[in-house]
């Protein structure tokens, strides 16, 4: 059985697209400014888990900002089902003046959930990320992994069909990251989210994604796509994961080497 099939269409054609990028380009400044993203077209199916992979300077974080509508595109179009997407960052970016539960409740309030329903809904979401009874804790009392789970609960509170994640586990230790990988896959399957996950860690991408999209750097373009058909539960140490990671890493190195003369 092979886990890598370059000829197969990488996107399942049956499901409707949850995120659709058409020839998206991004420059900061005038036409003379360097192009960050160049002619990126990408469909993410509803319920799909896609990892965007690339070296620094490939514009993967920029791409997420565009999809989240934090910045305008220079050219092309982006459609997101449900209008807007939830977005998580490398740092939990929880508000330190609120408790863990209040952080989740604020997202509910800004979504327009009535006051009397907020507490119960926040408790439910915290339980979903297995943080029962942590609602009253201050942010600084929580470990990095717990903060990221509260951040996941806050993102889920927005009730967007699409969850964008910008290297959300990059600052965590290996054991915690491993646990959160498992937790995220569980949530993805349980809640039925569409996830677009940005990382520069090849193994992490293969561990999580159904499809890995490799971006080239300066300008960012889609260099190659890999369908990952290793069944869950996966382990980051599994030989199938390692084998595919080697293939993708080689391709990534090739991309980076092209910039040797820059």
């Amino acid at each position: 059985m092979t886990f890598l099939d370059l000829d197969a269409p990488a996107t399942p054609v049956v499901a409707p697209a949850a995120v659709r990028l058409r020839q998206v380009s991004k420059r900061y400044g005038g036409p003379a400014a360097p192009t960050v993203l160049d002619d990126v077209s990408l469909d993410v199916a509803a319920g799909e888990f896609v990892c965007l992979l690339g070296a620094s300077g490939c514009g993967k974080s920029t791409l997420l900002s565009l999809v989240a509508r934090l910045e305008p595109v220079t050219a092309g179009s982006i459609d997101v089902v449900g209008g807007r997407a939830a977005l998580m960052f490398q740092e939990s970016a929880l508000f330190p003046w609120l408790s863990a539960g209040q952080n989740v409740e604020l997202a509910l309030r800004l979504r327009g959930v009535p006051r009397r329903e907020r507490r119960g809904e926040a408790d439910r979401l915290l339980a979903l990320v297995r943080l029962e009874g942590v609602g009253r804790a201050r942010v600084h009392e929580l470990s990095g992994g717990m903060r990221q789970r509260v951040a996941i609960a806050r993102a889920l509170a927005q009730e967007r069909p699409v969850l964008l994640m910008d290297e959300p586990f990059g600052a965590l230790d290996a054991i915690t990251r491993d646990v959160l990988h498992e937790e995220l896959i569980r949530l993805w399957q349980e809640v039925g989210l569409t996830v677009v996950f940005v990382t520069h860690n090849v193994r992490e991408a293969v561990r999580l994604a159904q499809r890995v999209v490799l971006l080239s750097s300066r300008p960012g373009r889609v260099a190659q796509e890999y369908a990952v058909s290793i069944p869950h539960p996966r382990r980051i140490e599994a030989p199938e994961v390692a084998a595919l990671a080697v293939t993708i890493t080689d391709r990534l190195r090739e991309e980076i080497s092209r910039h040797a003369g820059d």
Partner: peptide, 30 residues
């Protein structure tokens, strides 16, 4: 794509993850 999401998702079927997480939380909390 990944198969059989519902079965894999039952929380009570992954007690290892739950206790591992609880252990990490207990160790990491200030």
């Amino acid at each position: 794509p990944a198969t059989d999401p519902v079965v894999a998702a039952r929380p009570d079927q992954s007690p290892d993850l739950r206790s591992l997480e609880a252990g990490l939380d207990a160790l990491g909390r200030r």
